[in-house]
Design a protein around this nucleic acid. Structure first.
Lengths: 205, 205
DNA sequence: GTCTATAATGTGATAGAC
DNA sequence: GTCTATCACATTATAGAC
């Protein structure tokens, strides 16, 4: 669509700049260049760098795939659901490593800046989802279908196994993969099956 | 010891500043204040901020506990070694969360800056250790004592499970723990046993 | 070696013409 | 709305006295 408003164009440019470089690394001049307009116009539409950031961040955070309700609510057995969730997240991360890197970088550089915005977006959808997952885990556990693990630790384990290789890519490459004849791409490709197997094996009663 | 040279005092001050705020967040003025000396002296001893950073970083990286040779070379069975390693790393991270946060923050903000220094420090000790670990895993796997898992994935799993809760503390707190009546401290306290159990269960043949 | 003063630069933000 | 020119400030780095 060619009838984008100037405001939209600025928003898009800022989105790219912030997600690539983070708040501290982003430059108003660079955003203006991306948008093909003048620096003063940024301030005309968004007053300050902070306001511009606050406008863009929700768009970034909302892409965290918290919409896996369809998996949770289908009729597949627990093991299949776990597998579907792991595969869904790993694929999301494979295709959007930038989003998670952005969030982590902001939390490590200026936690307060992100915290406010984050709470607003997450509290509505996220907690609901997590409590559904927790309930599901508790039910399976009490029925003896998996070994009795605390839901919060199982969820943390799943998140850790999925997420870390993407935010710690450099560490994995330099420390681990360096010793094997395997590229990062191959490694990630095989990881889906490895993680699913690992988790399901651990859960067997 | 009271006979610290000025250079040492500056080094200590810079160490604190960099590990707390990262390269981009650190301020030469703040380092001078910590050291109780003048800003110009920093440049007298270390010429530039970059040089000062390069002087300090190896001290930080070397604290990564790559010295677990004693665990690897004792005569305990595989399961016990895994348990010892996990407990060792988790305790290290519990007592030194700053170090890992520093490394991750630098990798997410200015990868090139850290990469050079990192390679120099790691290549000597780290790879040796990882290849020993990999060999151990392969041996157990071939002897049928654990299920056949690729060493690189098992090592990544162990690292992920140990490390992520410390660098993603905010995410764990807001997304996961928020739904349970449990504090982060409690969570970390119980995690040691949970992670060991999880890994060993997954590995059973 | 250590200080004060100041240069040199980069960056967010504003004034004011059109 | 959009531009040019400029301010105001922070920050690294250097000059030069002592």
């Amino acid at each position: 669509m060619e009838n984008q408003t100037t405001e939209d164009i600025i928003f898009e440019a800022a989105y790219q700049e912030f997600i690539e470089k983070g708040f501290e690394g982003a430059r108003m001049q660079s955003i203006a260049n991306r948008a093909g307009i003048n620096k003063a116009l940024l301030h005309y539409y968004y007053r300050t760098k902070d306001k511009l950031f606050e406008a863009v961040v929700p768009k970034i955070i909302q892409q965290l795939p918290i919409g896996i309700n369809n998996i949770l609510e289908n009729n597949n057995p627990f093991e299949i659901k776990i597998e579907q969730i792991v595969r869904f997240y790993l694929n999301f991360l494979k295709n959007n490593p930038q989003i998670l890197q952005f969030i982590l970088r902001e939390l490590l550089t200026g936690p307060d800046r992100l915290a406010k915005i984050f709470s607003l977006v997450i509290d509505k959808n996220g907690n609901n989802l997590v409590s559904k997952l927790a309930q599901m885990i508790r039910k399976e556990s009490e029925a003896g279908k998996i070994y009795p693990i605390s839901p919060e630790h199982l969820l943390t384990n799943i998140i850790s196994l999925c997420v870390f290789p993407f935010i710690g890519r450099f560490l994995i490459e330099k420390i681990v993969l360096n010793n094997f004849e395997i590229s990062y791409e191959e490694f990630i490709y095989k990881r889906e099956k490895e993680v699913v197997t690992f988790i399901l094996r651990a859960l067997k009663p």
